[in-house]
């Protein structure tokens, strides 16, 4: 009872001692959480075989944003485009009897085949690594879990680094740390880079809103990437009707060979 009284007395004192009131209008006390909305002109992208890469623009808006926090740049937005997920195998070559051969390998569980990130600034200066790892935002923070038990964790790190490096160098993983720009106090525009070798299938656009380094809201939106054209039709045929496709290949060979022997016949 006595303890309760003491706290009850302390509370108003603390309110006087620290400028708690000053924070109230800018913070949670307003009762409404900041909102985040994103939109794109399309939910499907058709790419032809001569596709050399492009930019995808995502528009977004902050609602109920705090003017002061906006003014001092306490809001950060990260927008990512994650490709379809699949297993990925990294292999390492070593010299064996003078010949370079794959000796070690590691398979990672369900990682996005492509990953493009745009942010207002360096993602590692937005939030700390452990919490980025938790939400899996950023190329260095994507979950890369090896299949099976690997006793040596040093090796896992080595293969993870190699995976990220290879994906960045072949363009499937990209990042643009100034890709998100505020066009007005609450509207932003994110430019995501689509690599030339982007896989087709269901991609996911995700937007994350950080306030003073804390993730406070996120949104996601599916985006289908469809490859078009004769080349894609061939790829589909090769995978969906392999026997008919193989038969066609043989038929072309027979016609070409036979045709040549008729056309060039000497007698």
């Amino acid at each position: 009872m006595r303890r309760f009284l003491r706290t009850a007395l302390l509370l108003p004192l603390m309110a006087l001692a620290f400028p708690v009131e000053a924070q109230v209008p800018f913070g949670q006390a307003s009762g409404v959480k900041e909102g985040l909305e994103i939109g794109s002109s399309t939910s499907e992208i058709a790419i032809a075989s001569d596709f050399r890469g492009a930019d995808l623009t995502i528009f977004g808006a902050l609602t109920n944003a705090d003017e002061l926090f906006l003014a001092i740049g306490q809001y950060d937005v990260v927008v990512t485009l994650e490709g379809p997920k699949d297993y990925a195998t990294v292999r390492k070559k070593e010299r064996v009897f003078g010949i370079w051969m794959n000796t070690e390998g590691m398979t990672f569980e369900q990682v996005p085949e492509s990953y493009s990130l745009a942010s207002t600034r360096m993602i590692d200066s937005i939030d700390e690594a452990p919490s980025l790892n938790n939400i899996g935002v950023g190329i260095d923070h994507l979950a890369l879990n090896p299949v099976g038990y690997i006793p040596d964790s040093g090796i896992i790190g080595e293969f993870r680094d190699a995976y990220r490096r290879l994906k960045l160098s072949n363009g499937l993983y990209q990042r643009d740390t100034s890709g998100v720009r505020f066009v007005s106090s609450s509207l932003f525009r994110a430019s995501l880079k689509l690599p030339a070798n982007i896989p087709d299938g269901m991609h996911m656009v995700r937007a994350y809103l950080f306030k003073s380094g804390q993730l406070i809201n996120q949104r996601e939106m599916p985006l289908r990437v469809v490859k078009t054209g004769i080349e894609q039709a061939i790829t589909d045929a090769a995978h969906d009707r392999p026997l008919a496709y193989g038969f066609l290949c043989v038929l072309i060979a027979i016609i070409t060979g036979w045709g040549a022997s008729i056309v060039f016949r000497k007698d």
Binding site: T89, T107, E113, Y163, L166
Partner: peptide
Amino acid sequence: GLIVTPNDVYSVAVGGM
């Protein structure tokens, strides 16, 4: 090609092992 040191000793492939 088998003997010279490759540019990158690591390689990545989609799919399991």
